[in-house]
Design a protein around this nucleic acid. Sequence first.
DNA 1: AACGCGGGGTC
DNA 2: GACCCAGCGTT
Length: 357
Amino acid sequence: MTVQDRTLHNFNILGFQQDLLSWYEANKRDLPWRKDQDPYKVWVSEIMLQQTKVDTVIPYFHNFLEKFPTVYDLAAAEEQEVLKAWEGLGYYSRARNLQHAVREVVEQYNGQVPDNSKDLEQLKGIGSYTKGAILSIAFNKPVPAVDGNVMRVFSRLLNIDDDIAQQKTKKLFEQIIHEVISHEDPSSFNQAIMDLGATVCTPKSPSCLFCPVQEHCQAFALGIEDKLPVKAKAKKNKTISYHVLQIRNENGEVAIEKRSKDGLLANLWQFPMIPVKELNGSPVEEWFYNQYGLRIKMGKKQGQLKHVFSHITWELEVHPAQLIVEDGTNHSLCFVPVEELSSYPFPVSHQKMMQYL
DNA sequence: AACGCGGGGTC
DNA sequence: GACCCAGCGTT
């Protein structure tokens, strides 16, 4: 059974393309990365837009392009500079992978973003969606760019109830778009689906009465648009408690450290964090000495905050502390003046704690 | 195939 | 609270 047999047997492809594209021509959003088709700008915007709303991305996009106008500027930058420009945007591996890939483009492709699938998909951070987005938007090639929007729109259009959280469902939609995409204007086609998904065919309360492709939509005809798409529930979020120390030395400088190069918030900076679970009732000062080899005296709690990630919740209790002896031995802490903190990339949770300094 | 990976907005 | 968002890399 082919994709066409299962889903497209009664779908008016040419009529759909025409209705979609003429709606897009009249209603497309005015977005900063749509001013030209510079592949580098398209690339940066697509990485920023992964799991991130347009309104959040816009100021970051402007700032990033101002700091790193070309692949050469980004390739030459310090990673910490790039992370600083990404600070607050989340999913920081996107920034590190983007710079890694841009350096490869400079070295292997003479600074030209590849215009073919084979080369694009082996660049770090470019998966199936981003590859399709770059090829279609920047190079006008008829390649599917299937994201959450596309799966939502087409699950409703074609009444497909496969779980969109599954990998194989994304492949099904890529086959469908392969059949349906406009070869006349693939760039507008892919962007039109995204605009439609963002502004009309929304996750909740879609505006079917104003939908330019309503007459092509099976879910609307059946009155089941609010039942689609089907998506498996996410795993439950776990809570971890920490004491966070804002340690001053005799010069009033404050202690920060760089996080691991792997895992959560990789390579960002933070105030030292003590997992409450590891204390087992023993004093923080003792745990800290065993871990860092430095004597400190902890002060009274200054405040607390809760920070929710997609898969973890941090419960943070903020304490001031004083360094007793600077022994000059190896430890991972840097003592820096408070006014210099703004030059380091910090997670949002630690930015919020700076009010207690 | 499942999981780790941010942060903000909406209802 | 739960859910969503122009997903990807690792295991």
